[in-house]
Design a protein around this nucleic acid. Structure first.
Lengths: 350, 350
DNA sequence: TCTTAGCAATCGGGGGCGAGGAGTGCTAGC
DNA sequence: GCTAGCACTCCTCGCCCCCGATTGCTAAGA
């Protein structure tokens, strides 16, 4: 390969590829050699550029919709652009402030903060934003409270470090008084404190129930509450901004959109698509066919994990046409995820 | 006016109008006089039908997209159809069962039940379904629990008759022990029990706090929790099935959809549109311009209130093209709302 | 008075055609 | 290696025209 530059491209080819991508992202029209010489001072004639473009096409970076049209980037072209050519962006202070302010006003509830962040990202990115909600499995147990409602009914409330409260109504076969419930709550709290939800065993609970000499059904009530706390939100998504996609010239015909909206509504596919970006440090980008789903060949996704304390607990993504402003969306997604992370950590229940 | 039938229409005109609407709903194509004589045994020739169609057009019930096309219903035509001509539908036992089964499996949480019902209605109706979430104002207070998390932090949980739990984290300026919180919880519960949330006064809370000789800041903590319980969900919507609209031939051009999706995302407009149907007994239908929003002239909405106990607490609606199967959607919406209502009442916390 | 057959008139949709133009690839010369 | 020039390709757009669908009207018949 040509050692003159990244990806086997010499400097000029790389620059031309970058301008083609920039131009196509901006205009959604195939880019002609003359456009390039006119808008960018390449210092060479359009004929030279044509030669370079032909080379880039041969190298698989560009494609031509038809013979007498300009070039548009291929998936590989976008990939090279994203990995090596584009100028990374950082957020303007104004954007950063706006994100912070909007998320500050959001409720403190986990779900709602995540939904706010998704809506915000959808609005700022002018694309479809979505977020996976954290599995509660890895959360830390903070408190369990049994609330007495009547002699045989009550409610179990589980509070975790993320402030999630799972509620679970229960009915008993035998009468119980408020005091019993309080004592059982206390016993459980001292035993279970600071365990991760997934590490709580039935035997822990059984021991507490026995210690107080209570009926075995309490154990089931508690386990049900804990299970519902664990399973909450599993692999569900928040999404926002679908109608932004309708603005894109490439989706005017509504058919392409249908498939994508179905995928968004189904959630499962989308979840799988971004799941492997959970551990990534930087924003992860998947372009067109890299998504591995036929209906999504015209789309790209930018994904950033968000954190609670040290560990990544979910992903925030932007889905848009392959012709998306990658640098900007990566900056926006990162910024939103960062703010979301610190917002969540602020609200931690210690 | 012609006294021969409903709305000033004689029997034959009424029948012809009804068939035009049926046919247009089924085909999305302007309906020709010949189509009518062929598909429906009118017993007269197409020329006669043409005369009748001309009369109906003069009466404002039909319009012609252009001279050499068939007729399509006007808003007034649909209105007459809905009010007087169409055959009301009732749900098949199978549909009814399906609704019941799907909602039974849904979580018992208020929000999620409503969202499930909305999703289900979107799926069954093949249109966009949305629901207003109930204001918590009119809910009955059942229980307040102060949870001790650390010497100066805690969580207040409010349980209402609808099973809604509002949570509210608080911080205290002075230390408090678990016992104090428990005693305060008890004092509050005995004072506030069975009041409507909106009827709880600050003085009720203050009295309980004073009775136990606790610091005044407890009053604020409790009031905050109660306020957050009251304000939860205010005028927010659940929506589902937007991509169904993409299937409709009249929305292939994506532009019409944008405006509608914007409106759905904004929520406020939509909320206002259906708000006045809250007190209706039967399904309320708004057709095209009756919605009073220019961008929605091509749409209709069917709205049904759902109940908790005796009182209507929210609305379940279907939004689709004017050319919607009104009778079926009214049946579906009613059926879903009914099931939702009984589901909610079953889960009442007494 | 209502109905109907027949018919001219109207208008949109679609196909074909050709001009225009954008853009390329190639060649030859610098 | 670069570039001017040019032939070639192929898409787009507008135009026209035809066809078909459907109507409204007229005049005759029940």
């Amino acid at each position: 390969m040509n050692p003159g530059g990244p990806g086997g491209l010499d400097k000029r080819k790389a620059y031309i590829l970058a301008t083609v991508v920039y131009e196509y992202i901006a205009t959604a029209e195939p880019v002609a050699s003359q456009t390039l010489t006119q808008k960018y001072h390449l210092g060479v004639s359009s004929a030279t550029v044509r030669n370079e473009l032909a080379d880039l096409e041969a190298g698989g970076y560009l494609v031509q919709p038809h013979t007498s049209a300009g070039r548009i980037p291929s998936d590989a072209g976008y990939r090279t652009f994203v990995d090596q050519l584009m100028q990374p962006e950082t957020l303007q202070a104004a954007d950063r402030r706006r994100i912070r302010d909007e998320l500050r006003d959001a409720s403190r509830e986990l779900d709602e903060v995540i939904e706010s962040a998704t809506r915000l990202l959808g609005r700022l990115s002018k694309n479809l934003a979505f977020a996976t909600k954290p599995s509660n499995d890895a959360q830390t147990f903070r408190h369990l409270q049994l609330i007495w409602l009547s002699a045989r009914t009550g409610m179990a409330i589980v509070v975790t470090s993320m402030g999630v409260t799972a509620q679970s109504l229960f009915e008993l076969a035998v009468d119980a008084g408020p005091d019993e419930l309080t004592r059982l709550s206390n016993a459980l709290n001292s035993r279970l404190g600071n365990k991760m939800l997934r590490d709580i065993r039935e035997s822990d609970v059984a021991a507490a129930v026995e210690e107080l000499g209570l009926a075995g059904e309490f154990k089931n009530v508690i386990m049900t509450a804990l299970r519902s706390a664990r399973s909450g939100e599993q692999s569900t998504l928040a999404a926002s901004g679908a109608q932004n996609l309708l603005d894109q010239p490439e989706f005017q015909d509504a058919r392409k959109l249908r498939s994508i909206l179905n995928i968004v509504e189904e959630q499962k596919t989308l979840y799988d698509l971004v799941a492997d970006s959970m551990t990534a440090e930087a924003p992860a980008v998947k372009i067109g066919h890299e998504l591995g789903v036929d209906e999504m060949n015209d789309f790209s996704i930018v994904t950033v994990p968000y954190r609670f304390g040290e560990s990544a607990i979910g992903m925030l993504s932007v889905l848009g046409p392959r012709r998306m402003p990658y640098a900007r969306l990566m900056a926006l997604a990162s910024g939103t995820a960062e703010t979301l992370s610190s917002r969540l950590s602020d609200a931690e229940i210690k």
